[in-house]
Nucleic acid binder design. Sequence first.
DNA 1: CGATTTCTCCCCCGAACGGGGTATGGCCAG
DNA 2: CTGGCCATACCCCGTTCGGGGGAGAAATCG
Lengths: 209, 209
Amino acid sequence: MTPSIRVALVEDNTRLREQLAQFIAAAPGFACVGACADAATALATLPAAAPEVVLMDIRLPGMSGVECVARLKARLPEVKVVMLTAYDDSETIFQALENGASGYLLKRTPPADLLRSIQEVQNGGAPMNSHIARLVVQSFHRRGSSPRSCENLTTREEEVLRLVAQGFINKEIAESLGISLETVRQHLKNCYAKLHVRTRTEAAMKVFR
Amino acid sequence: MTPSIRVALVEDNTRLREQLAQFIAAAPGFACVGACADAATALATLPAAAPEVVLMDIRLPGMSGVECVARLKARLPEVKVVMLTAYDDSETIFQALENGASGYLLKRTPPADLLRSIQEVQNGGAPMNSHIARLVVQSFHRRGSSPRSCENLTTREEEVLRLVAQGFINKEIAESLGISLETVRQHLKNCYAKLHVRTRTEAAMKVFR
DNA sequence: CGATTTCTCCCCCGAACGGGGTATGGCCAG
DNA sequence: CTGGCCATACCCCGTTCGGGGGAGAAATCG
């Protein structure tokens, strides 16, 4: 048979932590190699315990779960972290993901689903509940479409600004587009006016953040 | 009972399209209100059909599925689009999501799972297979942490660059930080050298995209 | 302690930029 | 057909940038 998945917990609620630890330890194919009550303990003990998957509460006493993920990933780059949260805390979702979390589940997730999610993340997936998945996907919608900011920009203006955002100077942009330097400058002037900015950097950040 | 979910298909393979259309039409709680073979037909007929969810093949003759999503969302902002793809085409995933797609599934998804995914997207979820979910989550890992790029920057250098990214000119940054204009320039020179860029815009985009 | 890093300031100079004009040709809607 | 929008192009002029130097004070690290 395949070896058990090594799982660790970081959860300050003693009752829930022990409940989960027992459940995971008892499940075939899973091993519980750690159950910490706070971030400091996790950072001190988990590197030695070498878990493959960590379930981490997002609200912890002292250091937050988000901060803990970042530090833990620094020492165990291969570890997969699934955040657990009581409410779907939109604010911190993205911070956690940026810091290296691979999944995001609600605490009320049924234990059986939790085990499935652990397997999923171990197999390279990214388990998350549907509401959170939607938020993640929505964050893409805003990015590419450039909502209000560039709505007024013409095709050409946006094209020029895209090259500006890539760090090209006007002369290079002119050559790249096969137009005059002066024309590039003219398009940029129009961009500045429409976006209410005064510099190329501000324009680029506004449209292509 | 709740009304059926209005579903439309855009899929060039006739066999698969009709198979899916029949399956959806036959399923309780689902109605198939359109089945188009290409993007042009979809754009022409779907606004009138008013589907709530569209299953869209990513590879279509003529206009690509990605392009089609963008245009369709422009006319039907409320429609939820789930992309279907034969292989997990990493290249186009992000383009599709940026253009407004809400989900991303493989064609080999079992029909029963497909129905569940349609319900999920209708309820505000974002169905996607686990491999794609991982890619999406990974795209966040790179973003926030600013991996190699700004690791070498000193506190002050990053501070200056942050103001650059907000569109301030050196003179304003100097006043804001209470230091000399020359010092600001010096910090920026160091940034450029460390980031291997030549302009403030390129540096800003590299560190604060 | 000495070496290194960081932050601070200064000069010169050529290139790049931003704002102000003006103008021509194409295209589309009223 | 006329006015508006778009893309193209040019001029002047003052400001800003970026690269090249040099240099001192403080902090940090071996």
